[in-house]
Amino acid sequence: MLLIKSFSKSYGSKKAVDDLSLHIHKGEIFGFIGHNGAGKTTTLKACCGILKPDAGIITVDGVSIAEHPIECKRMMAYLPDNPDLYEFMTGIRFLNFISDIYDIPADIRRERIDKYAELFELKGDLAQPISSYSHGMKQKLAIISALIHDPKLILMDEPFVGLDPKASHILKGIMRDICDAGGAIFFSTHVLEVAEKLCDKVAIIKGGRLIKCGTMDDVRGDASLESVFLELEG
């Protein structure tokens, strides 16, 4: 679903990501773990076409993001680490805006907005301006907007930050459902327990370089993910 081949990106003289290669298959929840500044966000942004790679190829379902960004973006959704949404819009206006961009028919958008807004208990606040939302509410709205066009691939940067336990639980369920339906999730997290329970595969990145990648069992062996991570991080 998502293929990252020899991806490198530098900011000035600092190499943020160096020769990273990953393959996220359909049906997989793929966790991306690393310390702050390891290169997780840079990788996710490059995957969704926000950042241009210095080197390497990134493809979504066989389509190059560099050559066909619109086609790729139609297949996926991106959830940033900080949900900076248009504060001058109400929640429902924002969802309509996203739906218009993805050309979602009225009946489908109504059904999905109802479904997800009810699931995340945001329906009553959809008519409110986003500027009045709490961080958690913005995060929920960003999640709904990411799900509204039924993407095949979702890239998420720290998706559980700011969510209450119930919303976190619901999101985990949705992530699993998407993958069971043939989609894929590539997400970064610092919460190793979540990664351990949720992910089919995991990659650990340090200083922009991939230091471990594989199925959860391959990576952690008999130990916990936390101890493996701490050991690898040195």
């Binding site: 819009m89 309509n96 218009d100 961009i101 008519a127």
Partner: peptide, 29 residues
């Protein structure tokens, strides 16, 4: 507090969505 109703769903093209977004940005400031 304004209450959300299903009437609040309006269809539009992607270019009109972008234009409306610009207009909302403008009128909000």
């Amino acid at each position: 507090k304004a209450l959300y109703s299903e009437k609040d769903i309006h269809l539009g093209s992607s270019s009109s969505a972008l234009f409306k977004k610009e207009l909302l940005r403008f009128t909000s400031s």
